[in-house]
Design a protein around this nucleic acid. Sequence first.
DNA 1: GGGCTAAATTAAGGCAGACTTAAGGTTGGC
DNA 2: GCCAACCTTAAGTCTGCCTTAATTTAGCCC
Lengths: 219, 219
Amino acid sequence: MRVLLIEDDRSLADGIATALRHGGYAVDLAVQGREGVALAHAAQPDVILLDLGLPDIDGIEVLRQLRSGGLTSSVLILTARDDLTSKVRGLDAGADDYLTKPFEVDELLARLRALERRAGLSVSAELTIGDVTINLASHEVTRAGEPVKLSRREFTLLRALAERPGHILSREQLEDKLYSWGEEVSSNTVDVHIHNLRKKIYPEFIQTIRGVGYKLGAK
Amino acid sequence: MRVLLIEDDRSLADGIATALRHGGYAVDLAVQGREGVALAHAAQPDVILLDLGLPDIDGIEVLRQLRSGGLTSSVLILTARDDLTSKVRGLDAGADDYLTKPFEVDELLARLRALERRAGLSVSAELTIGDVTINLASHEVTRAGEPVKLSRREFTLLRALAERPGHILSREQLEDKLYSWGEEVSSNTVDVHIHNLRKKIYPEFIQTIRGVGYKLGAK
DNA sequence: GGGCTAAATTAAGGCAGACTTAAGGTTGGC
DNA sequence: GCCAACCTTAAGTCTGCCTTAATTTAGCCC
């Protein structure tokens, strides 16, 4: 866990840094805004502790520069100002939390733990088979970078096949993916949708195993 | 965005709830700890506002039950106690933030926005999708620099979609963002609001995935 | 190669889901 | 307490998709 502390008051900064190191954090220290922005990009910290009262640049401006530079670290603002507006401005400029000076080290540590907890990354689930990508969240499918427009049933079928590339799925299994209980179907729908999929992507993309079912890739 | 408020002081609770609803949140209200735990599971709120001084169970205990029940909503503690220990205990028990009473509604709203941000919903106070910008704090929306006037419901819908650009949200999910428990709606309101949004912005801005839901750009 | 079965192809009809519109109802501001 | 804005309903229209089924093509075994 890496922390970047941007704080111009040297003795306060040293005190915090020591406490954090005791707490098992790796701490980088910057005493000016510009320096802080540079270090943030160099050190890629998990959390940034940002003092609002910096000598060279306004803290909120630093925050803005960090965010517009694409930085995703959590930011905790340290401020002597307890006026509402700068708190609100700070939070709206992309801070995750703030702490008013003076504060107790225990509270700082507690807030850091709270920030750590929210480390859940949202992974955009995407399947790739050959030059075909399937975005599960947006239902977007591309083939060699070109978007392919699929209907609901087509998408469901394709996903079912793409989830187990190389495995053969029978018509029956595929129907199970398409239809819920009590709305079974009595025709060759699966065949038809497979056919349409092949037309939209390319024929060899889906292989037929005669008498068994269909499968993707892994030729 | 859905908020669960657990607060035993009825008039305070009503005040907060009204303010939040104005801000475009769907608000569920519980006046007791047990009730709160139950509702949290039923309503699946994005954020829980938890008063520590509840009549039946201690607030921290409520929090513990919520977390051990696997709930991942962000929790913001409201407390009259400004003593450090209960703050720290709260944060360690899994709260994401706290606010000491009395507080200003503006600050509550700012903290809510900050919580939403951390939950990975958005990175800054302003969302931009294509040439449309959405200011979460002021509720101002512009399209190609031109201001667009949206109603409350329209704004809430747009925000929900904009928080996860490219992701598809079903009508059901969108309704959850608009309505609190017990005020469910049985018509095509979502459709209508989407339609009005499209008229005010432009039709292709919101895409329909037939049989699945709606999504924004990300093209 | 002939016969048989499985799969591919095609097109049409029907329908469910989505869009549109307008009329009440409700709410909030003054 | 009135007015305007906004929200909900509901009905009607539209459209893209799905299913159906009939026909053609391909694969396999003897």
